[in-house]
């Protein structure tokens, strides 16, 4: 139930994001989800793409610093309280979230929350036991 995410180091310079998306587009790689963490000096772009390995490879070839990490993708009801419910479960289990971001699906009925946990395996355990539906890598990449 782990989903691979790539992270790319970015200096705060204009045009860098366009460059990365351009490189991925050139390879026919589709971005499923993304978030950008930024500080005054640098940014970290996190992406879930339909072909992690190719994306990692082409970005490295172009000289970017790329890392791969495992995240957990949980489905929540796209209605008030949907996210609150999942966060309550995480809180009750005493799990730490390093960061999270969200996107909605085409159907509009459920939203997907991407969690980066300090302890991935423990988190998966807790969420599955609580009945939260987690998406597999294949499912996410194929969205």
């Amino acid at each position: 139930m782990k989903v691979e995410q790539i992270a790319i180091f970015l200096e705060n310079r204009s045009g860098r994001l366009a460059e990365i998306t351009g490189i991925l587009a050139g390879k026919g790689i589709n971005i499923r989800a993304m978030s950008l963490a930024d500080t005054s000096d640098f940014g970290i772009l996190r992406l879930i793409v339909n072909d992690t390995e190719s994306a990692r490879k082409v970005l490295k070839e172009k000289g970017f610093t790329v890392g791969t990490t495992n995240v957990v993708v949980a489905e929540v009801q796209d209605k008030p309280g949907g996210l609150a419910n999942v966060l309550q479960i995480i809180k009750n289990a005493g799990l730490n979230i390093e960061y999270m971001y969200a996107f909605t699906q085409k159907s509009g009925e459920t939203g997907l929350i991407i969690f980066r946990f300090e302890k991935v395996d423990a988190a998966i355990d807790v969420l599955v036991k609580a009945g939260v539906r987690l998406l597999s890598g294949e499912e996410v990449y194929a969205i």
Partner: peptide, 14 residues
Amino acid sequence: VSDSIFSDEVKTLE
């Protein structure tokens, strides 16, 4: 930032 010091977490880099 080389691969070996890079992290997807801001707090690690900071």
